[in-house]
Nucleic acid binder design. Structure first.
Lengths: 219, 219
DNA sequence: TTCTATACCTGAGAT
DNA sequence: GATCTCAGGTATAGA
């Protein structure tokens, strides 16, 4: 349940990101949200605005709706963050719960800071999470050379794509995935492909083989 | 989940209650409580003193203890108020939670005002809720002619009994109810009886048919 | 025991 | 005005 980090991505951590160009890295923004005090406080949850949630993270019908899903996101260092994603009937809202508080703590996020969610253009099950300080430029074009002026995780070091041989987020078998996050995925998803590092070790899988990043059953 | 009100009971609202005689109307008081600032404040809950709670609203053993119950009470206008009733382990106290704040707001209750709970003598699953302003006479015998000197909901207009064809509070099937609120109920409870208005419409049911007022499963 | 997670709930504001 | 959203809560179990 702890975030994973490979030795390679540890090295990447030392490379600050300066030039933001999502197209260059084959990503597209899904949405961003300025964090509320509640999002970074003791409630340990992030409310995802309904319109964004239903567009980008549609929950399967049935009991998965009650139990929620696990979503995994890569951050600016290559670290994988797994969050429980679910719907709260009582408040009719979509939330990230388990795991979220650890992310807030590590990034030292405060109210007003902005969180960004992206996905890979060609591999829609690869999700990315990034953040910037409140008041920082959103497009990264400012070139002020300030830490606060940039996204973290909205761009990644160039080596990063080598980390992934396949999809890092997928439904569990035996269901056949057709559409996810508003994208048709027939030609992108290959259930037999196992994500791995160049050295042959599995970078992302920590649990049993059936435990994928977009797991339909949450336990 | 909103309080329900029939057109008939709306009419009854225009009849101020002047003469209090619980025997005449086949009711008996269970208990009353002067409201604390917390009872009418932002905590949105009413603490029911333990002795009264365990005598009059005993919680069934098992998971109902954790999930709580729905209790329904008729007020002085015939309106039905549903409250969630449960036990808080943390404070070892019995509370009415969901729905309570709406009642406080509608009656404009303040700290020091007194709340009264009654039940029907012959139909112990019919519960009533009433209130009076702080310092007002409790027995209604003062005859001061003052609004503040009287109970509201401790007596009801004489037409009121026509509203009820059956019990308005009961356990869900398939359980057989034997004892509730300290009263033996074999001869009073009929699971097949659905509360209804004289016009034949269901006055109390808003949800699916299985949704009774004293529902053992809270969802 | 403290912290986290889950699943409730409500009021205020927007639509 | 009624409905919907969601920020900010609570209760409670489990790690």
């Amino acid at each position: 349940m702890e975030p994973t980090q490979s030795s390679l991505s540890s090295n990447l951590h030392n490379h600050p990101s300066h030039s933001f160009n999502p197209d260059e890295y084959q990503r597209e923004a899904m949405f961003e949200k300025p964090l509320t005090p509640s999002d970074v406080g003791k409630l340990n949850r992030l409310v995802i605005p309904k319109l964004h949630a239903e567009k980008h993270f549609p929950l399967p019908a049935g009991d998965s709706l009650h139990k929620g899903l696990l979503l995994s996101f890569e951050d600016e260092t290559g670290k994988c963050w797994r969050f429980r994603y679910s719907y709260w009937n009582s408040s009719q809202s979509y939330v990230l719960t388990k795991g979220w508080s650890r992310y807030v703590k590590e990034k030292q996020l405060d109210a007003g800071d902005v969180i960004l969610f992206q996905r890979h253009r060609l591999d829609a099950l690869r999700l990315f999470i990034g953040w910037r300080r409140r008041g920082a430029a959103a497009d990264g074009s400012g070139g002020r050379g300030l830490y606060q002026g940039q996204w973290h995780g909205a761009n990644v070091p160039y080596q990063h794509d080598f980390l992934h041989a396949g999809s890092m987020a997928q439904y569990e078998a035996p269901k056949r995935l057709l559409r996810l996050f508003g994208v048709n995925l027939e030609c992108q998803v290959d259930d037999s492909t196992e994500p791995s590092t160049p050295d042959g070790s599995s970078l992302w899988s920590q649990g049993p083989p059936t435990h994928h990043f977009y797991s339909q059953s949450y336990t």
